[in-house]
């Protein structure tokens, strides 16, 4: 079981309110991602759940029981740190066994569980090495191994992939998702990378300046962002947000249109502009279109083989059905 409920949880450092009172429920077995720009309070929120920081107000319940004042070790949670936080003076085996040793398990039971975790994580051949002798990905797996042997009611991940190179990150992303499918344990995952959030989460919590901007499934956030912040944060490349006269035409303060919902044509269309930088990815091409009079640059996604060059004149046609509209407060208008 691993149902975590935050009830008016708040955090202040001195006079600075890092997290204003917020409510959130994480259901058992859910993969929840906290995402937001750096400094938005997502790591602090995770540490509050872990018990590594005291809350300044409100209540944290784990499986219905008040855990607000419970020590980190007694909450039944396991945490994987950004730096992996492996014990450098212990072998992989000892690292993984450490929580079991602290819990006072017999040597035999420790060995059994460590072997089991190592097999799952492909670490069997590395058990007698020290963390210093492992690659980044292997260290990451040891950190996960140390978490899973405890059989926690929930896993907490604090930006676990940010120290890995791009290729490994994609691989580990899959492994963690796979692990979640197999264990079906609650996972709370903090990242600043919206791609990780979109690909892994059952439920995304978008945070900004300590406040929850929106909670929802990845596709909900993609299709119906509640405000301009979420609209700009979720999706890659970013949604084009257009204010001023063009928005006024639609009777709103801001309109938003995703790069993939704009058609490009060299001959005719709604908006006219000049091609600036083009990024060729092979499968897709992203054009930054300048001089449209709408915004500094409009990003457009086109197919891989579009023959447009720097300085060419282009016409853009947004798909009106896919357009998002926001009021003066930045809130979505249906």
């Amino acid at each position: 079981m691993g149902r975590i409920t935050l009830d008016k949880v708040a955090k202040r450092f001195g006079d600075v309110e890092v997290i204003p009172p917020l409510d959130l429920t994480i259901e058992d077995g859910e993969f929840v991602v906290f995402v937001g720009p750096s400094g938005c309070g997502k790591s602090t929120l995770l540490r509050l759940i872990a018990g590594l920081e005291d809350v300044s107000g409100g209540q944290i319940r784990i499986d219905g029981k008040d855990a607000t004042a419970v020590q980190p070790a007694k909450r039944g949670l396991a945490m994987v740190f950004q730096s992996y936080a492996l014990y450098p003076h212990m072998t992989v085996r000892k690292n993984i066994a450490f929580p079991l040793r602290m819990a006072g398990l017999s040597q035999q039971e420790q060995d059994k569980k460590v072997e089991g975790a190592a097999a799952v994580l492909n670490l069997t051949n590395y058990l007698d090495r020290r963390p210093g002798q492992l690659s980044g990905g292997q260290r990451q797996r040891v950190a996960i191994g140390r978490a899973i042997v405890r059989e926690p009611s929930a896993f907490l991940f604090d930006e676990p992939l940010s120290n890995l190179d791009a290729a490994l990150r994609v691989g580990m992303r899959l492994e963690i998702s796979e692990l979640h499918n197999r264990l079906a344990t609650t996972m709370v995952y903090v990242t600043h990378d919206q791609v990780e959030a979109m690909t892994m989460a059952d439920k995304i919590v978008v945070l900004n300046a300590g406040r929850i901007e929106q909670v929802g499934s990845p596709l909900e956030l993609y299709h119906r962002p509640r405000n301009t912040f979420v609209a700009g944060f979720i999706g890659s490349p970013k949604m084009n947000l257009i204010e001023g006269a063009e928005a006024a035409k639609h009777g709103v303060a801001t309109i938003g249109i995703r790069p993939e919902h704009i058609a490009v044509s060299p001959e005719s269309g709604t908006w006219k502009g000049k091609v600036g930088v083009s990024e060729h990815l092979g499968s897709d091409t992203f054009f930054h279109v300048l001089d449209t009079g709408l915004a500094d640059a409009i990003t457009v996604r086109a197919g891989g083989e579009v023959d447009l060059h720097h300085g060419d004149t282009v016409y853009l046609s947004p798909d009106a059905a896919k357009m998002h509209r926001f009021d003066t407060e930045g809130l979505r208008i249906e």
Binding site: R47, G51, L52, E53, D54, Q71
Partner: peptide, 8 residues
């Protein structure tokens, strides 16, 4: 890092 417990 710091909780009341660790501070005391």
């Amino acid at each position: 890092m710091a909780t009341k417990a660790s501070r005391s």
